[in-house]
């Protein structure tokens, strides 16, 4: 068993740093939270810029529509909540933010399986499917603390329009360095595809990276792409990397229905049909676990299990 020692980063710490920097660089930035600033990472902003921080209380629908009002008045609101409970306000996001193309940045924290202890009620495995259908919405899912910081700043300071940023809790793979560049609409090739092209994002990018190393020991050359922009997805990179490979694999901590696997399938089925193995949460809910590693094992999403599935598919 591979012990997951590379998950030593924290999304919320990175978010906290990004928010302070965004607030320092642009006075129109305001942050709203639904009574979880200690958990999401907005607390540091609240302490530094109390006049620009609103704790709306435990009311996510109000959170989203209040942020919309602040955007109408010229602010750049960043509304943060657990991804699961932000989805409670999906209809508000659709009808009030998306329809009017408002400049609101929604940050869904504790997404995917990252909130291992809290179990199925808290594990957002459907958010990408929900958000991908909203016209004009940009969806970003950084893997590392470095990417989180850069992409939150990019989305906030340099991008006009609604953005959903999907973050885990902690357990972030430090797979990028501070000198890596990220831009909205882009992806990052970690390793070029040969036999297999693997696409992943967020915390699972670290797991997929380990799976790729295991495959190499078995003589299988697998590439890996960090698809940190889920929408608009980087079609060119997906097509070029897939063209080289016999098998396309998507790895995600999301329901395989409507997530990255679906997005990649949409691109390839139109441009260049390929056999696609979708690895993720197979139409089920999560579970509570004592450690992140334990939950990945329970869900069949450890590097070994992923490598086994890919080897099985190659035959």
């Amino acid at each position: 068993m591979v012990v997951i020692v590379w998950f030593n980063g924290s999304y919320r710490k990175a978010l906290a740093e990004a928010l302070i920097e965004a607030g320092s660089r642009n006075s129109s930035v305001v942050v709203l939270d639904a009574d979880t600033p200690k958990s999401t990472g907005t607390l540091a902003f609240a302490r530094k810029f109390p006049e620009r921080f609103i704790n709306i209380g435990i009311s996510e629908q109000d959170l989203v529509a209040t942020a919309a009002g602040m955007a109408l008045a010229g602010k750049t609101p960043i509304a943060a909540a657990f991804a699961m409970f932000l989805m409670r306000a999906w209809e508000q996001v659709r009808n009030t933010i998306a329809r009017d193309k408002l400049n609101v940045k929604l940050i869904g924290t504790h997404a995917g399986l990252s909130d291992f202890m809290d179990g199925a009620s808290h594990q957002a495995l459907e958010d990408i499917a929900l958000m991908r259908t909203l016209p004009g919405f940009t969806i970003i899912a950084p893997a590392s603390p470095a990417a989180t910081k850069k992409l939150v700043l990019e989305a906030t300071l340099n991008h006009e329009g609604p953005v959903y940023i999907r973050l885990g809790r902690d357990n972030a793979p430090n797979i990028h360095t501070d000198s890596d560049e990220f831009h909205i609409g882009g992806s990052k090739i970690i390793e070029d595809a040969v036999d297999v092209a693997v696409f992943s994002f967020g915390p699972m990018l670290g797991v997929a990276h380990q799976a790729v190393k295991i495959l190499r020991k078995h003589g299988i050359q697998a590439g890996l792409v960090d698809v940190y922009t889920i929408k608009p997805i980087d079609r060119d990179t997906i097509i070029k990397q897939s063209a080289k490979a016999n098998l396309v694999v998507c790895v995600e901590d999301h329901n395989i229905h409507g997530g990255l696997g679906s997005a990649v399938a949409e691109v390839l089925s139109e441009a260049m049909p390929r056999r696609i193995l979708r690895i993720g949460v197979n139409d089920s809910f999560g579970a509570s676990a004592r450690t992140y590693q334990q939950l990945l094992e329970y869900m069949g999403l450890t590097p070994e299990r992923i490598a086994d599935k890919i080897r099985g598919e190659l035959g």
Partner: peptide, 27 residues
């Protein structure tokens, strides 16, 4: 018209957001 609507229950939150922004700006 300031905001699109049709889905009920959202206007007061939007108004609060405008009011909170106005307070920050001193408008």
């Amino acid at each position: 018209v300031i905001n699109s609507s049709g889905s009920l229950g959202q206007g007061l939150s939007i108004a609060n957001g405008i009011a909170l922004a106005s307070r920050i700006d001193g408008t």
